[in-house]
């Protein structure tokens, strides 16, 4: 018994210590930092509520946060809409080659994130591929950026980047479905589309939800993609956080903004989990 405890302590102490020092502590420290006057010199030791007042007064911040949430939702939705049929095709139509075909889809996700975004810049810019293509077919009169520096460009580039990460969990969830269940549904009178709605879709929902989180979380915190292809229209909440540390040098304000994002994220995730649970019961009631 004593042995077991000491072994456990030996195993758990180093990772726990690291996580406390460099994950829990920074979060708490960031929270207190948001009450500081400033990041440097005397201001560093002065306490204030000014940043909170400023944040509440400036509706631009709140609007931007709302817009970023909307963009994260949109991107997740597009990814799921594109990835679900893909995963479905691989599982139910591709036979033994499904793993090879899935790997082919995953490979682009393993290449440099920055360069994939850069590639989109090359595609969308005025001398880019899309502009040239549209000129060739006569839809565009002169070299002009297509979509570049807009909200849409950010969503397109991010959908592109995350698509493989959504296909993977949906593929895994569909792979786990016992084919006998679909036969049982057919046996009990379901034509294929009803079997899909009543059996395949509900059973693959965990994969869809996992895929949603894979996209939603990093997209909400995104600042690099908007900085590269978003322009003024495509700016996201993450960009103004980054701004507080790079240009504005108002670190406490940045800390507060990060804190708000963290809070928003946790609330949204909690809401979603709750919604799913409620929805699951609903689904069950509908059928029963």
């Amino acid at each position: 018994m004593r042995d077991t405890r000491s072994r456990l302590l030996i195993l758990i102490t180093p990772p726990a210590l690291l996580l406390i020092m460099f994950f829990v502590l920074p979060m708490l420290n960031m929270a207190t930092f948001s009450f500081r006057q400033g990041a440097f010199g005397e201001e560093r030791h002065m306490w204030t509520l000014a940043h909170y007042r400023e944040f509440l007064r400036n509706t631009a911040f709140q609007r931007l946060l709302g817009r970023s949430i909307a963009m994260a939702f949109e991107t997740s939705l597009y990814c799921i809409i594109l990835a679900y049929p893909l995963a479905y095709f691989l599982i139910f139509r591709a036979g033994e080659r499904r793993v090879a075909l899935l790997t082919l889809v995953l490979v682009p996700a393993w290449t440099s994130f920055l360069l994939r975004i850069l590639a989109w810049k090359l595609i969308l810019s005025s001398e880019g591929l899309l502009s040239g293509l549209l000129q060739a077919v006569g839809l565009l009169a002169e070299p002009k950026p297509v979509l570049l520096y807009s909200r849409a460009a950010v969503v397109v580039a991010l959908t592109y980047s995350w698509l493989p990460f959504v296909a993977l969990p949906i593929f895994a969830a569909l792979e786990r479905i016992d084919p006998h269940l679909l036969e049982a549904a057919a046996d009990l009178g379901c034509p294929p589309w009803r079997a899909f709605l009543r059996v395949t879709l509900p059973l693959s929902l965990p994969g869809v939800v996992a895929g949603f989180f894979f996209v939603f979380i990093p997209t909400l915190g995104e600042w690099v993609t908007p900085a590269l292809v978003g322009g003024v229209d495509g700016i996201m909440y993450g960009n103004i956080i980054q701004d507080q540390f790079v240009r504005g040098l108002n670190w406490p304000m940045g800390a507060l903004m990060s804190l708000v994002m963290l809070l928003a994220m946790l609330v949204l995730l909690g809401l979603l989990v709750w919604l799913l649970k409620a929805l699951h019961v609903e689904l069950g009631d509908l059928i029963g």
Partner: peptide
């Protein structure tokens, strides 16, 4: 609690983590 805390970095946007560590190192 241990599992929840160690999984937390998965659900936190990188910009928040980066900023929090920056402030910590500066502090």
């Amino acid at each position: 609690v241990f599992m929840a805390v160690s999984a937390m970095p998965l659900v936190i946007p990188y910009v928040v983590l980066g900023v929090a560590l920056l402030i910590l190192f500066s502090t």
